[in-house]
């Protein structure tokens, strides 16, 4: 079922996508930091807060 370059078959139960987990945790961290920065510094720190 897999391509010509397969050197080993890995089934669902023996596959732990820990590389993916690591990448996605990095993504999560970036998103969280950027959100806090954008909301609290860029937006709330900006001029002319709309009050009503």
């Amino acid at each position: 079922m897999s391509g010509e370059n397969t050197v080993r078959e890995i089934g669902h139960d023996e596959f732990d996508p820990y590389g993916t987990l690591a990448l996605i945790l990095i993504y999560f961290a970036i998103l969280s930091v950027m959100w806090v920065f954008m909301y609290f510094v860029e937006f709330l720190g900006n001029d002319l807060t709309v009050l009503a």
Partner: peptide, 24 residues
């Protein structure tokens, strides 16, 4: 994002990729 990257990682590991990021 998770499912697709995990599928690609599966491909990489079947192709002999190793390590936390080395599979890329």
């Amino acid at each position: 994002a998770f499912t697709v990257v995990a599928s690609v990682e599966h491909g990489a590991r079947q192709r002999g990729g190793t390590g936390l990021f080395g599979w890329l």
